[in-house]
């Protein structure tokens, strides 16, 4: 009886307290989570060499950015990354659309077995097969080319899976209607299925772009010239500690390379998060 009475007013007040703690906890964690970015921004704006005391009296400077910009062909790296990402995405869209369509709408012998094999590729990571893939790319004469970096990623099991799911959810009546109007299979794919799967395409594209913009190990292995090297590899060479570059300069270089993606993320935040979500739920 006693406990019941004493808990009544408590119960009404507790949620508010909970909310305050929730908010504080959430904010603290959020600050911790972006603090590496904040500190790097701070460091990048400090004169190089004076380094890193949190001394707010030193004037901020952009000289690190100027130095970094002149030291390395960033614009070239940036162009390489854009070309690479576009190439991979284009390849993926074409190949995965066709294969996804095949697995969703055609009956053929061995389809289900082959599809299991495709799913298995989700676990045979291209990253793990670097040794053999390097040999293959070299044999094909694609070493140090954008195609050489991109080709192993184009037949994406993940993309095939996503698009197959999307195509399967398209009502058959839509397809039949299009066929009555005389559409060929390709016409049906192009006029019915592709438009219906638009959000899936958008999600997949964003995830693919972010993944390959950030990819490092494979491009490191199959490139060896500034003409093909993407931003990540360029940044890793620049930031190597043995070059003795100081931290303000490294921070400036890092911020410069992540800025395009960061800005894109801040603008398309909702779409990005939605995209990762949609793509992640298999």
């Amino acid at each position: 009886m006693n406990t019941l009475v004493s808990s009544m007013p408590n119960k009404r007040r507790l949620p508010d307290l909970d909310k305050v703690f929730d908010a504080i906890g959430a904010w603290v964690l959020a600050l911790v989570w972006i603090s590496p970015l904040l500190f790097a921004t701070w460091a990048a704006l400090q004169p190089s060499g004076t380094a890193l005391g949190l001394d707010f009296s030193t004037p901020l400077t952009f000289e690190n950015f100027v130095y970094v910009w002149n030291a390395v062909p960033w614009l070239g790296y940036f162009a390489n990354t854009v070309i690479l990402v576009t190439l991979i995405l284009a390849g993926q869209l074409v190949l995965c659309t066709l294969a996804g369509f095949a697995f969703a709408r055609f009956e053929f012998k061995g389809r289900d077995t082959v599809f299991i094999l495709v799913l298995l590729q989700l676990f045979i990571l291209p990253e793990v097969l670097i040794v053999e893939n390097y040999a293959i790319i070299s044999k094909l004469g694609l070493f140090d080319t954008a195609l050489g970096i991109g080709l192993p990623y184009m037949a994406s099991a993940f993309g095939i899976f996503l698009l197959r799911q999307a195509f399967k959810s398209v009502p058959l009546e839509l397809e039949e209607a299009a066929r009555i109007e005389g559409c060929s299979w390709m016409g049906v794919l192009w006029k019915v299925y592709v438009p219906a799967a638009k959000p899936v395409y958008l999600a997949y594209a964003l995830v693919s772009i972010a993944t390959h913009w950030n990819n490092f190990l494979w491009p490191l292995i199959v490139t060896n010239s500034p003409d093909t090297r993407p931003l990540t590899v360029g940044l890793s060479l620049f930031g190597a500690p043995e070059t003795g570059v100081d931290i303000s300069v490294i921070s400036a270089a890092t911020l410069m390379t992540i800025l395009p993606l960061l800005v894109a993320f801040l603008i398309f935040q909702r779409q990005f998060i939605q995209a990762f979500l949609r793509a992640g739920i298999r």
């Binding site: 790097a40 490092f216 931003l231």
Partner: peptide, 12 residues
């Protein structure tokens, strides 16, 4: 959305 390479630089 950051490259791991860039993340490593930030943490340096």
């Amino acid at each position: 959305i950051l490259p791991m390479i860039a993340a490593a630089n930030l943490w340096l």
